[in-house]
Design a binder for these strands. Structure first.
Lengths: 235, 235
DNA sequence: CTGCTACTTTGAGCAAACGCAAAGAGAATC
DNA sequence: GATTCTCTTTGCGTTTGCTCAAAGTAGCAG
């Protein structure tokens, strides 16, 4: 097995404030693995044996309901932690993680979590900061789901995606991983049909360009306008 | 100013695993305050000067949108932490907290947070566990909002409320603080009209009894059935 | 007791979005 | 190059739940 270089993780938020020897020690117990597209990194409700850092690729975090419906909780970009059930005092994963493109991840045995958190206080702080910001994110999402209607939610969703994973192209900003109407529907609590209708409508207005598993936002600012109140603002 | 007795907080989850001298030290810097019904403990977006533990009463946590809509995030019961913006690395409160009955809270200056977390590791662990469980709760809520329809959501909401704040009475289990149709609507992302219609419907079936700012669940088990799939389960 | 305020109920019409169904288009496989 | 599979589009009927409006009711203040 080849040694992992410290530079892999040195710049990441989770490892901020750690000195070189700590980083090396942490990497000692890490194993790197490749995950091919559509493969699961971990499954909901299974034993939380490991926690991970995504080094390259994109990962979809999905929660399934008992009756088989799915909700896409978030997408993970390189540098982020995932599967940190241990940090929340859980023993099973609350969701599944699927590679949406070929990925590279580092994995640590879950039982090392408490050791790391005490041995490297900054690491503990950093991860809890992550958890905190995810809590904020998801609270915002609840507010959105409670107060906005579908069109606004989908618009917000696209804006968030291009902010997180946008790549500038000739036409505008593209979401740089394959994402279907169904995926967007599962992020926003609607159906793929409604998403499809919205996208074609927006395409006619020149707001977006979209195709199979692919969305480009042509005019982010006009989409933002849609994302805020469309009607009702005429006071 | 009278001294605060250690027994006030000794049993609480947040202070589990702390020895008596630590508890005393922590209480040294606490101040207790009474909050009368309908008064705010802190306001959304204001400087997060303090964090709190609720000793007695009930507190409603509300998030407001820029256009004035409100979403009730959760209710806090005695023993729980609130206003822990610091733990999430935030400097302002992400929501407002309103006393729904007369309350007693302990308050600490926010800047003590990091000191406590490092000086009393169990305290840090405990609070992060709290944050973790709130993350789980709210993720479940997102899934609910995305996949269930209003009737199920309201049923789930009532079940959660009686679990957290239920008091056994002759008629059934009552939510032991004043809660309006509007409040329930703001928890479930619907309107007070729809909640009212649902409750009267359920009352006719003998599932609940309700009145002004008051709801009693007569048959929790039948309500649970409603909360899961009503139709569509006939496979 | 009376009037006021806040909360609740109920009706009627309407719009948003879903469910169902079928056809069309892109990509991958053989 | 034909076939298959998956993803997407689009039409239509239906439903859910919202909006608007108005009346009813309980508690509170004077």
């Amino acid at each position: 097995m080849h040694r992992l270089d410290r530079s892999l993780i040195a710049g990441l938020p989770a490892f901020q404030g750690l000195d070189d020897s700590s980083l090396d020690a942490i990497l000692q117990s890490a194993s790197s693995l490749r995950v091919t597209k559509d493969q699961a990194i971990f499954d909901q409700d299974s034993d939380a044996h490991s926690f991970f850092v995504l080094l390259d690729g994109r990962v979809q975090v999905v929660k399934s309901t008992p009756d088989g419906q799915q909700v896409v909780v978030r997408y993970i970009v390189p540098g982020e932690l995932l599967g940190i059930a241990q940090a929340l005092g859980r023993t099973t994963y609350p969701a599944s993680a699927i590679a949406v493109v070929d990925c590279v991840v580092l994995a640590w045995p879950g039982k090392l979590w408490p050791e790391f958190a005490t041995a490297y206080p900054s690491f503990g702080m950093n991860t809890y900061r992550t958890v905190g910001s995810r809590l904020s994110d998801i609270q915002a999402q609840v507010v959105e789901m409670a107060t906005e209607q579908v069109e606004q939610r989908v618009a917000h969703c696209l804006l968030r995606l291009i902010k997180q994973s946008g790549k500038q192209t000739n036409d505008g900003i593209t979401i740089d991983f394959p994402i279907s109407r169904q995926d967007i529907a599962e992020m926003t609590g609607t159906t793929l049909h409604t998403v499809s209708r919205l996208l074609t409508g927006w395409e006619e207005k020149g707001l977006v360009k979209s195709g199979r598993q692919q969305v480009t936002v042509v005019e982010p600012s006009r989409l933002s306008v849609l994302a805020e109140g469309t009607a009702r603002d005429n006071i």
